Every structure is written in C-alpha cells, then in structure tokens.
Simulated scan of single mutants.
Amino acid sequence: MQAPHPALCAALLCAALSAPVHAAGFMQESLCPGLDQPVAGTGQKYEAFFSPYTHHWSQDAEHQQVYAISLSRLLPNDRFCGFSLFNNSFGQPSAYAFIGKTWPGVLASYPEVYVSATAGIIYGYVGKYKNKVPLNVGGFSPVIVPAVGYRISPSAAVEVQLLGTAAFMLGATWRF
C-alpha cells in the first residue's frame, strides 16, 4: 500500500483542527476556535513562513538539507493554526498541521522579541526512518515546536524554531 501524499495529510489534519469536536455527546469548540473572528490590530489574517536552512545537532551521512514552507491563520489572542510542507532530514516529503500561540514582547528592553510554540501532528517519517521521531504510528507523530523570533516590522520577522533534540531551523515570516 502506498503512503498518502503529505499535502493531502496536511489538508486533512487542518480540516480536523478546524472542525467541531464531539466528546461524550457534547459539542465542543474546534481545536482552532476563532477562525470567523477578526484579528485585532493591523488587519492581517495570515502568516507565511519559509526556512531555507536547518542545522542538525549531530551529523548523519543520510541527512539532507531541510526546506519548509508554512501558512498560518492568525487568530484572536495571539493564537494561530496552520500547516507546513517540508522535506524531512532524510529527504522524505512531509507535512505538519498545528495550533500555536505567540507571546510578543517577552523582553522589556527588546519589545520586538517574541516566543511562540506550536503543537500538532507531523506525517512523513516512514520506512526505515520511522524510528527517527518518537511515538510514530504509521508515519504520524505528535510534535511540539518552540520558537524565538525578532519582529523586523509589523509584517516581517526572522525566527529560530527548535526541532527537539535533532536540530534548529532558521526562517522568515511575512504577515498579510
């Protein structure tokens, strides 16, 4: 059986994040509430991220350069939901659907500095690489990605994302 395409997995995971949750017969809000609410401030609704560089803490002859793109929907209270498409450290096409939160202005003397964290599900570490991420079931694994960023302008920022004990990723964001 052929594995599903990562872009399809990301789309399905994002749909699941925004769908209402039914638990014990009660209707709950979606995991990504606020999609229909305006975001205060600049009127920007989305944020795109691109990473051209990832540094692995330990070198492996099989490691390949990782490239990632993501799109997030900005939500009230500095929250966001989104998805990312990337090639993983072993060259496999991969996807990540996530929810997240940003804490702007964490340093009083540098208000442009922010921290954020995302949590979600990745798909893509399959075959002989299935044990390269924890809790992998059929190529799907839970993930938490903390990040530190510097807001250059209301629309642009640079960011460092920590990828567990494996690596860190450098990238840039653009809000629109």
Rank of each mutant, 00 (worst) to 15 (best):
87 N>C: 00
42 T>M: 13
112 E>L: 03
17 L>D: 02
108 A>P: 06
49 F>I: 04
42 T>F: 11
68 A>E: 15
30 S>D: 01
27 M>D: 13
128 K>L: 08
109 S>I: 04
105 G>Y: 01
19 A>G: 01
61 A>E: 13
129 Y>L: 05
82 G>C: 07
97 A>F: 02
78 D>I: 00
56 H>C: 13
13 L>P: 00
43 G>R: 09
31 L>A: 08
67 Y>R: 14
14 C>R: 06
112 E>D: 11
20 P>G: 10
75 L>Q: 04
45 K>P: 02
124 G>V: 10
70 S>M: 07
71 L>F: 02
94 S>D: 12
87 N>M: 09
125 Y>V: 06
101 K>D: 11
115 V>D: 11
29 E>F: 00
99 I>D: 06
12 L>D: 12
32 C>V: 01
23 A>H: 08
109 S>Y: 04
39 V>N: 05
121 I>L: 15
76 P>Q: 07
99 I>F: 07
119 A>L: 15
118 T>A: 14
64 Q>T: 14
15 A>N: 04
129 Y>P: 01
97 A>L: 03
101 K>F: 03
47 E>W: 00
79 R>T: 10
79 R>G: 00
119 A>P: 11
55 H>K: 14
75 L>T: 03
112 E>N: 12
129 Y>V: 05
26 F>P: 00
8 L>R: 13
101 K>G: 00
38 P>S: 12
40 A>F: 07
57 W>S: 05
52 P>W: 05
70 S>R: 04
70 S>Q: 08
56 H>K: 14
22 H>A: 13
108 A>C: 03
53 Y>T: 11
47 E>C: 01
36 D>I: 02
102 T>M: 08
74 L>R: 03
59 Q>F: 13
93 P>Y: 08
85 L>P: 08
14 C>G: 07
